[in-house]
Design a binder for these strands. Structure first.
Lengths: 236, 236
DNA sequence: CCGCTTTGTCACACTGTTGTCACAAAAACC
DNA sequence: GGTTTTTGTGACAACAGTGTGACAAAGCGG
């Protein structure tokens, strides 16, 4: 379900070819770059989840790219695996110093590479802090993925949870259905815009318990979309 | 103050010599073993912080020791770096599968080895106390590796125990299957994610006795994974 | 060498979730 | 009031996610 993007930075076609094949079998999506400049552009545009970086590259060594990545705050968390020839294992030390997370010497067994990629992704992906959001009695716990109304846990589906989480992190602001689809469903998913309405309804229903009714936190902004607000609606 | 013990397991005197020199410069204390038996004894007696394990050893291959270590619950967390000849890199895959945390091919630059040791120690330095965990009638004794429901001991496999121990030390929080694999199985083990489901089921089953049923402490978080919680689920 | 346990994987059953539709209700516009 | 546009609602079939029993391989203890 969670497709991972791997950026391959290597100037040898044969290597890229081999890597692409191995990675696609293991269900990764591949991006490729032959030089540092392309690599950097791709990183900024496509935001890959991991980078396989060859050491010797035209237009600057891999070390240079590595330094640049680790200096830039927006890409700091991007894990990097270095590819290096056996004869140049000294470079490894430099690389690990600068911030590569792992390395592998060419030639290598595809299975090993895959294993290392997966291990690295698991190791580095757990860093996201989940917050605890609260509006009066309504509490959303990101960590446990639960919502409480006072003491009682509320029952809702995953999509409704994501929707509520988004709303509670961006309150007092109207979003179009299209924007909600982008943020909650993901940018490259195509579903009907009216689907949002249905999930809004399900969320509203979930925000009602025998005791309380918080369903009007989700307000309709006619002609535009929806808004989450703890203050009154103030339209119509 | 925090002196680290490194156990070198290799039958070549020259290698041990070189390693010892490099490690002592880097302020580690060295233990040495020439064969598996000595190695195991030293591990039990001296409790080193990390093991450098040669692949080819008299009296059984390094793989064997590795298996033994990773099976034994008291030494499971001991980080292991494999030493292997370049000609035998295939072994690396086996080794990583069984639970080695890293590997390095001979000959290697001492500086690289030191870098890797430090990196590994940084990663795994969580010193885990063996504690006694309790949720209402359910008691987990880390020391004796037993679980009680009131007075009655519960019967479960090692993996189920580890899983429960992890859950009870991190309650009220949803984990993905991948995260559970990472924490309970180990970062470098590659098994199917659905395997987690099966062990969850076995654990749930183990949490039921004729008298009580604590199986709903393990809650399914649909679309995400599982959560251990003494409060209600909030989903189906 | 042989039972016994543990483990990872699979196929299948089952359940909740999802996106879409048709229609009702409401609001806006004339 | 009548018409058009927009949103709410219940139903539903397809689907993805999860529970479950069985099984073979591997480890363990004799």
């Amino acid at each position: 379900m969670n497709e991972r993007k791997v950026l391959i930075v290597d100037d040898e076609f044969a290597i890229r070819d081999m890597l692409r094949m191995a990675l696609e079998i293991a269900d990764f999506r591949c991006l490729e770059a032959e030089n540092i400049h392309d690599a950097y552009t791709l990183i900024v545009d496509e935001r890959p989840d991991i980078v396989l970086l060859d050491w010797m590259l035209p237009g600057g060594s891999g070390l240079e790219l590595l330094r640049r990545l680790k200096r830039n705050d927006t890409t700091r968390e991007l894990p990097v695996i270095m590819l290096t020839a056996k004869s140049a294992e000294d470079n490894v030390i430099q690389g690990l110093d600068v911030g590569a997370d792992d390395y592998i010497t060419k030639p290598f067994a595809p299975r090993e590479l895959i294993a290392r990629i997966k291990a690295l992704l698991r190791r580095t992906s757990g860093g996201d802090e989940q917050e605890r959001l609260q509006v009066s009695e309504l509490v959303l716990e990101g960590e446990s993925r639960r919502v409480f109304l006072g003491e009682d846990p509320l029952d809702m589906g995953p999509t409704e949870f994501n929707l509520l989480q988004f709303f509670m992190s961006h309150p007092e602001r109207a979003y179009t259905r299209s924007q909600l689809l982008d943020h909650v469903w993901g940018a490259n998913v195509y579903v009907e815009e009216r689907t949002v309405d249905v999930h809004i309804r399900r969320l509203r229903k979930a925000l009602q318990s025998p005791a309380h009714d918080y369903s009007d936190l989700i307000q309709t902004v006619r002609g535009t979309g929806y808004r989450f607000s703890s203050r009154g609606a103030g339209n119509r």
